[in-house]
């Protein structure tokens, strides 16, 4: 098994393109190493992207934030301006695993692991994040909701990898939140995850919203109906119930060791509502 740690995007692309699909990108490694240990994957080549400057930086870009794909959750948490602008995204990234895992796990890895239960993905989708991909034919932007197609299946082309994410500018009176359900307080994979981003006007009426649900379908969902259910409202009880109902209606979960279908559907409604309330509260106070 080869290990390479290129220092440029082009270098990484060249290695990945030459490997004919038998390569894996290493960011934080918190999923990849576990899968290698369990013989789930046995790549010929590992391309460590952490020595590439673009994957490790958090920078402002046109009023928004660009986050390198290999920035760790712990680093995001310590980035005060980012946390102020996108608390939901940072919270979600910080729900991935333990403190120790936080020291390694990255947004890029969390997305490209291809799990519908990834915590940071619903938050990124609710935030309207766009992934920047680099490949043999150059770079392209792809909304995060279009990156993952199903469990372990990505829209990435041969030789492509995720370099960074762009979070859009934050208008005033807007905020996001992410909640997940696990049976314990820590250390579990989300049974349901819900990300909500909201903007309100001066009167407290919701003018824009995005709602995303994780672990309730083969891929993380962007639920337009749930957003529609609260736009124009002040998130009164009726709007909350419409939101919960729309969230429940969007779910297509499986029964598995982590939760039953019925449970996931019920809890998706609850979490969407609770996350919306937190986002609303934050938006109002900005």
């Amino acid at each position: 098994m080869r290990y390479e740690a290129p220092e440029s995007v082009q270098g990484a692309v060249a290695l990945l393109a030459a490997a004919n699909g038998d390569a894996r990108v290493l960011a934080g490694g918190t999923d990849l190493l576990v899968q290698m240990r369990a013989d789930v994957v046995e790549p010929e080549l590992i391309v460590d992207i952490k020595r590439i400057r673009e994957t490790r930086a958090v920078t402002q870009e046109n009023g928004g934030w660009r986050i390198g794909a290999a920035v760790t959750g712990a680093e995001l948490k310590e980035h005060a301006p980012l946390k102020q602008a996108w608390p939901g995204v940072v919270e979600a990234a910080n729900l991935i695993g333990s403190t120790q895992v936080q020291g390694r796990a990255t947004l890029g890895g969390n997305l490209c692991n291809g799990s519908p239960a990834a915590d940071s993905v619903p938050a990124l989708i609710a935030a309207g994040a766009v992934a920047k991909l680099a490949g043999p034919h150059g770079q392209r932007d792809l909304p995060v909701e279009d990156v993952m197609l199903g469990p372990r299946t990505l829209a990435l082309r041969p030789g492509e990898f995720v370099v960074s994410f762009l979070l859009p500018p934050r208008p005033p009176r807007s905020a996001d939140a992410y909640l997940r359900f696990i049976p314990r307080t820590e250390m579990d994979i989300a049974v349901v995850g819900a990300g909500v981003s909201i903007a309100v006007d001066g009167a407290g009426t919701i003018t824009a919203a995005r709602v995303s649900l994780g672990a309730v379908a083969p891929r993380v969902l962007l639920v337009a109906e749930a957003a529609q259910a609260i736009i124009g409202s002040r998130l009164d009880d009726a709007a909350q119930e419409r939101l919960a109902a729309a969230a429940r209606a969007a779910c297509r979960p499986i029964d598995d060791k982590r939760g039953t279908t019925e449970f996931r559907v019920d809890v998706a409604g609850v979490l969407a509502r609770r996350a919306a309330l937190i986002a609303m509260d934050r938006a109002r106070t900005r």
Partner: peptide
Amino acid sequence: ALNEEYIYGADGKLQNAGFLDYRMPVASD
């Protein structure tokens, strides 16, 4: 009482043979 259990599939195989899904209490629980 609350969360630990051996979970088997219909194939008779254990589905949660690890600390991630065999949920022992952690400090914050």
